[in-house]
Simulated scan of single mutants.
Amino acid sequence: MIEINDLTKSYGNKLALQHLTLKIESGKIFGFLGHNGAGKSTTIKNLVSIIQPTSGSIIVDGLDLAEHRQEIKQKIAYVPDTPDIFLQLTAMEYWDLLAAAYDLAESDVQARRHKLVELFNMSERVDETMASFSHGMRQKAVLIGALLTDPDIWILDEPMQGLDPQAAYDLKQLMKAHAEKGKTVIFSTHNLDTAQQLCDELAILKTGQLIYNGSVQDLLAQHNGESLEDIYLQMAGRQGDSHLVDDIEGDSHE
């Protein structure tokens, strides 16, 4: 279980995250929803120790992240919101680097790497540099690297971004299978269909504040007959005022 307690992150006078408190249980797929700048990536970067909170705490399986950072990081697979990293390395060199960082022997990762490379259709590209890949291919390489060590907790920041439909489908199946093993998947997304398909629970953030935490089913039940898209936009921001669209379209005909 992951417990986030009164987590706050500020940059000067700007509050990126305000007193966030929630629990993420093992065996669940947990999604973060929110507009750009809502605090999704800030929360995730705190969870994986890229940034430190201004105040509050994160407890992972009973251990305080501030005191047991290295031990907890060994439990986590992380996919950042951009795959543009280590571009000078080949895909295979990148995966070898990650295996070494987790102190894993080649024999420990070879079979799993082979399965992931085959699944994401990268077997013919492993000796090419990351710089030569398209955005989607880089995303696949980063996903393979993150999942290579098969840790208990997956934390994925916009993981479907840039993936082709087959790769996105395969990743969703992997996420479901991981949770079914009693492990944890946390991801952020702008895609409401993906959230509805996958999430056991979700958190909706708005300007750094938590405005909903619960299941998609409970949220839909609270707004009888409305779509998740309509509910989300009512909660998180402007619901597409038609007169603004009309004004823009009207301008185009003048």
Rank of each mutant, 00 (worst) to 15 (best):
M1T: 06
I4Y: 02
T8K: 00
K9N: 05
G12K: 08
N13V: 12
A16T: 09
L20D: 01
S26M: 09
G31M: 06
K40Q: 08
T42I: 07
P53W: 05
P53N: 04
T54Y: 01
G56A: 02
I58E: 04
D64H: 06
K73E: 14
K75E: 15
K75Q: 15
A77T: 12
A77R: 01
Y78N: 07
D81Q: 15
D81A: 13
Q88A: 13
T90S: 15
E93L: 11
W95V: 05
D96Q: 15
L97R: 04
A100C: 09
A100V: 13
Y102N: 14
S107L: 11
Q110V: 11
R113F: 02
K115F: 08
V117H: 04
L119E: 07
L119N: 07
F120H: 01
S123D: 15
T129I: 09
T129G: 11
A131C: 02
H135P: 10
Q139A: 12
Q139M: 13
L143T: 11
A146R: 08
T149E: 13
I153W: 06
I155N: 01
E158L: 01
L163H: 00
Q166W: 03
A168D: 05
A179S: 14
K183V: 03
F187K: 08
C199T: 07
E201I: 08
T207N: 11
Y212N: 03
G214S: 09
S215N: 03
Q217Y: 01
D218N: 11
L220H: 03
E226H: 10
D230I: 01
I231E: 08
R238S: 13
R238W: 01
D241W: 05
S252Q: 14
H253M: 12
E254D: 09
